[in-house]
Design a binder for these strands. Structure first.
Length: 184
DNA sequence: AACCAAAGCAACCGCTCCTAG
DNA sequence: ACTAGGAGCGGTTGCTTTGGT
């Protein structure tokens, strides 16, 4: 159980994002505290989890909130209070952090009026040319050590409990996603 | 063009909850 | 039933961006 004594903090770099996405594509999520070592990141497990959950995982839609989403947030906040994860569960393409920020910055002091009239959802912002992948430096699977190749306290079956399951997340989708989140 | 203030957002911290042993 | 460790959540901070002067 060797942990980094001083894990790196601050804004994530594109390289770190690429490594984390590529690793999770291959092995899935098995232990946030141990994973950073195998990914080759000097981040805490918490930091990796947060980055993945809020920005890197598939199916997130960054950008403006639609009017419907905004109304849902206002209504559920009245019903549930600041239970952002519960509210986020009803908006599958948004994260609790997104919703929390949106509430605190735009709706909190103004929740009876619409915070913005321009709420068009810019799906087109997510458009990307997957053919541009050749110029990107995406880590390959061989860049990562096999988790069970190291002396650890978990078993191979533990490490690979989600292996192959995530193969629906193809390299093309990875490239699309990296573009969509504005990294490239 | 330079400066400043406000707004927005990404990330960290500390706590609670959950689960396996 | 108890404990330890991991995961998840909400509050908060601080950096970056944007708009005004």
């Amino acid at each position: 159980m060797v942990r980094q004594p001083y894990p790196k903090k601050g804004t994530w770099t594109p390289d770190e994002d690429q490594k984390l996405i590529a690793y999770i594509m291959r092995y899935g999520v098995w232990n946030w505290n141990e994973m950073p070592r195998f990914v080759g990141l000097q981040r805490s497990g918490k930091s990796c989890r947060l980055r993945w959950m809020n920005y890197l995982r598939p199916n997130l839609r960054r950008g403006n909130f639609t009017r419907e989403e905004e109304e849902t947030i206002i209504r559920l906040q009245k019903e549930l209070g600041n239970r952002w994860s519960a509210i986020a569960a009803t908006l599958p393409h948004k994260t609790d952090n997104d919703i929390k920020n949106y509430w605190n910055t735009r709706l909190k002091n103004n929740n009876s009026a619409s915070a913005t009239t321009e709420t068009s959802c810019s799906i087109e912002e997510n458009s990307c040319d997957a053919n541009s992948s050749a110029s990107l430096n995406i880590p390959t699977m061989t860049d990562f050590p096999e988790p069970f190749a190291c002396s650890t306290t978990f078993s191979p079956s533990d490490c690979h409990q989600t292996e192959e399951v995530d193969n629906t997340y193809s390299m093309r989708e990875l490239l699309f996603h990296l573009n969509a989140i504005g990294r490239y």
